[in-house]
Design a protein around this nucleic acid. Structure first.
Lengths: 151, 151
DNA sequence: TTTCGTGCAAACCTTTTGCAGAGTG
DNA sequence: CACTCTGCAAAAGGTTTGCACGAAA
């Protein structure tokens, strides 16, 4: 699970608007954290990854602020929190298509799965369990092609 | 996520044999921890749950021992470690049918899902991702019938 | 007797919280 | 000016580790 290097050059205006949710104040910190996520399109960043990315531009940005801000961005519907089973949360832009993940047990590589692949199964799960599924996100464990190949 | 009360009366001989894996020493602690899991058939116990269950018979059994022993039981193929998304691991007997889980986001109730329900999807996931699935265990999030019902 | 397992304490990692002060709207 | 957000410090919760002693084979 690597950290994509980001320039954190400056948010485009559309992004600034996006994170300026009602009741929220647009702070330098919130902008920087949002940027780190945006610069990392398609990837997954943990709180620690965000801390690293942001630290270059704001050495004093405290981790407590990062956790609080990530929470708020999730609440505001701008981020999705994902559990990849690594004992920590990962965050990705909510604007991306909803999807599921396959994690390589060997190297940690993460691949995305389109919703349609699992969609037809949800009704069966609901019928069998009696539960109403709410925003279920699946994480599959496996070995990626590279790790599977004879070395 | 409640703890099933256990008597911890004594392991049956078959169980003692089971946990006496090659290269392992059969200690009082290992037996007690195994018992707690056996007594709790069908349920899921966290390390904390095991600690509680075992403490009645062995107040000095240290939590470090519990973590180490649970790890070894998993390595020995006697237990399965399950991630129900609660920020901690749960353990169940590996002898049980392999299954998946639905967790109620409201009350935490856990239901089991038979393997067949999701089986047909695995091939599609493998085809789409190129990964080879290895022991994937799925956890669905939803609301159980009780929580869904108007109160 | 050799080796592995245990108890203890301390550390580790991720995340959360109380508080006073700074910054935003 | 009101209220949110930040930085700091401290703590919480789950899990891991180093070490010396104790117990199993």
């Amino acid at each position: 699970m690597t950290l994509a290097r980001t320039s954190l050059a400056g948010a485009r205006s559309g992004e600034v608007t996006a994170i300026h949710a009602p009741g929220r104040r647009l702070t330098r910190q919130r902008a920087l954290i949002w940027e780190a996520l945006v610069e990392n399109e398609g990837g997954h960043l943990s709180a620690a990854d965000v801390t690293l990315a942001v630290r270059a531009n704001a050495p004093d940005l405290h981790h407590a602020t990062i956790y609080r801000t990530l929470d708020r961005l999730v609440q505001d519907g701008l981020l999705r929190r994902t559990d990849l089973g690594a004992g920590r949360s990962y965050y990705e832009l909510a604007a991306e298509h909803r999807h599921h993940h396959v994690v390589c047990a060997s190297c940690g590589a993460v691949a995305h799965l389109h919703e349609e692949i699992v969609e037809t199964m949800f009704a069966r799960v609901e019928a069998a369990s009696g539960y109403t599924l709410t925003g279920t996100e699946l994480t599959f464990q496996g070995r990626c092609p590279a790790c599977e190949a004879p070395s």
